[in-house]
Simulated assay, not measured.
Amino acid sequence: MISYLIAISFLLHGILLVAIVILSLRVSKAKELEKRQEQIAKEIEDTFTAYLIEIKEENANLLNKLEENGDNGGKVKPDEETLEDAPYILNTRNDINHSYDQVVEQEDTGSKRGNKNETPSYQPPVPDEQDHYQPSIESTVLQMYNEGATIEEIAKRLDRGTTEIELTLKFHSRMS
Score class of each variant (00 low, 15 high):
M1T: 15
M1A: 15
I2S: 14
L5H: 12
I6P: 11
I6V: 08
A7P: 05
S9H: 15
S9A: 14
H13L: 15
H13N: 15
G14I: 11
G14H: 03
L16Q: 08
L16I: 04
V18C: 15
V18I: 12
A19C: 04
I20E: 04
I20W: 10
V21Y: 15
S24C: 09
R26H: 11
R26G: 13
V27T: 12
V27W: 13
S28C: 05
A30C: 11
A30T: 04
L33V: 11
E34Q: 00
K35G: 02
R36K: 12
Q37Y: 04
I40L: 10
E43H: 04
E43I: 04
I44H: 09
E45V: 00
D46R: 07
D46M: 03
F48Y: 14
A50K: 15
A50D: 07
Y51C: 07
E54Y: 09
E54W: 06
E58M: 08
E58T: 12
N59R: 08
A60C: 01
L62H: 03
L66I: 11
N69E: 06
G70E: 05
G70W: 01
G73F: 05
G73E: 06
K75G: 01
V76L: 00
K77Q: 01
D79I: 06
D79M: 01
E84S: 11
D85Y: 02
A86V: 07
I89W: 00
I89C: 00
L90D: 01
R93D: 06
R93I: 07
I96V: 09
S99D: 02
Y100F: 08
D101W: 10
D101I: 08
Q102G: 02
E105R: 02
E105P: 00
E105L: 04
E107W: 00
D108T: 07
N115C: 07
N117K: 12
E118N: 04
T119H: 13
T119Q: 09
P120L: 10
P120T: 07
Y122C: 01
Y122I: 09
Q123S: 15
D128Y: 13
Y133A: 06
P135C: 12
S139H: 13
T140E: 12
V141E: 01
M144A: 06
M144V: 06
N146H: 09
T150G: 08
I151K: 01
I151T: 03
K156G: 04
R157I: 07
R157N: 07
D159I: 06
R160P: 00
G161C: 05
T162V: 09
E164H: 05
E166V: 01
L167R: 09
L167E: 10
L169V: 03
L169M: 04
L169Y: 01
K170Q: 05
F171K: 15
S173E: 13
R174Q: 07
